[in-house]
Computed example of a mutant assay.
Amino acid sequence: MTRPLIAVTTSQRSGWRIFPLVALNIWLAGGQAQRWDAGRPSDLDGVEGLIVGGGDDISPELYGMSLVASARLDPARDDLERRLVSGALDRNMPVLGICRGAQMLNVALGGTLDQDAYASHQDSRRYRTILPRKRVMLRPGTRLHAIAGAAPMRVNALHSQAVARLGHALQVAARDEGGMIQAIERTSDPFALGVQWHPEHLFYARRQRALFRALVCAADAYRCGSHQGGAVDRSADGAAPA
């Protein structure tokens, strides 16, 4: 059987260097990646899964607020990704959000963002590195906990915004030591997971590769009309991360 095709949204400016890393992780997980951005065709009917990648901050206009901190915005990308996330979930298609993508998942489902997350969470240590220095705790009983294991996880961090009020049908899956939300997930099909860090840079870590494997398993279930949560759970049971 052919590999599930996963669309990956990127910035027009920096996607050339980000996409190859995400594509590598998808390939290692058994899928195949296709790059999308605001200047490329984007037809959800031609793919089985969606990754919303990292990049610039999301405009607060999308969640009914005004800009209160300096940020680099990309309105065309905002419009594209909100439409794609909504369209994917309407189709029951699985979604993985990476950093900005986790925030877009939340916003597309009616949630809000904290534009200056480290001012609001002063006990959260601020890092700006692709190295795994930030410690996050996974919430027991969540799908992320089943996918990546119970132990605290070391991740990287490049963000300034974070999830504030949760969107519809989402729950918190991980927080850092200062209480800032670091991962969110849907509680039922379609599979949807958003992580505040960049697992594509951590492809050498089995627990990070497990996130991409979960999406690919859900995408395979989607094209077969099967239950995505069950497919992800079976995959996690068969390859429990160390």
Rank of each mutant, 00 (worst) to 15 (best):
R139A: 08
S86E: 15
Q122S: 11
M93C: 04
D37R: 01
L80T: 13
P60I: 02
R165H: 12
G54C: 12
M137I: 14
L73A: 12
M65E: 15
L166W: 07
D79I: 14
S120A: 09
T129D: 13
P75S: 06
Q103A: 05
R72W: 10
P140H: 01
Q115P: 11
V107Q: 12
L113Y: 13
G39Y: 10
G31P: 04
Q161L: 03
D79S: 06
H121V: 05
R83G: 09
R139L: 02
R154A: 00
R133M: 13
A102L: 09
V52G: 10
S59C: 13
I98T: 01
L138I: 10
G31Y: 03
L80S: 04
N156S: 09
L80D: 04
Q32S: 12
R165F: 00
L144S: 06
D90M: 03
L50A: 05
M65Y: 12
A117H: 04
G149C: 08
G101R: 08
G167S: 07
D43V: 02
M137W: 12
G46R: 15
P94K: 02
H121Y: 04
P94G: 05
Q122D: 07
R100G: 05
R40T: 08
L96E: 05
L73E: 01
P94Y: 14
L113P: 12
D78P: 01
A157D: 05
A148T: 08
R128K: 15
A71V: 06
L109D: 02
P152L: 03
S86Q: 15
L89I: 02
R126V: 05
L144K: 02
S70I: 00
A76M: 14
A38T: 08
R40V: 00
G39N: 14
V68I: 07
A157F: 09
A119D: 12
V163P: 09
W36G: 00
S120F: 06
M65C: 14
K134I: 06
V95F: 05
I51Y: 02
Y127H: 10
L89K: 02
G55D: 04
R133N: 10
A151H: 14
A150C: 07
H121D: 05
S120H: 09
L144M: 03
I130G: 13
G149Q: 03
V68Y: 00
T112G: 10
G87V: 01
R126E: 10
L105D: 08
I130P: 12
R126M: 12
M93P: 04
G101F: 05
R83L: 07
L84I: 03
G64T: 03
A76K: 13
R40E: 01
L158E: 08
T112F: 12
L50F: 10
E81T: 01
S120M: 00
L44D: 12
R154Q: 09
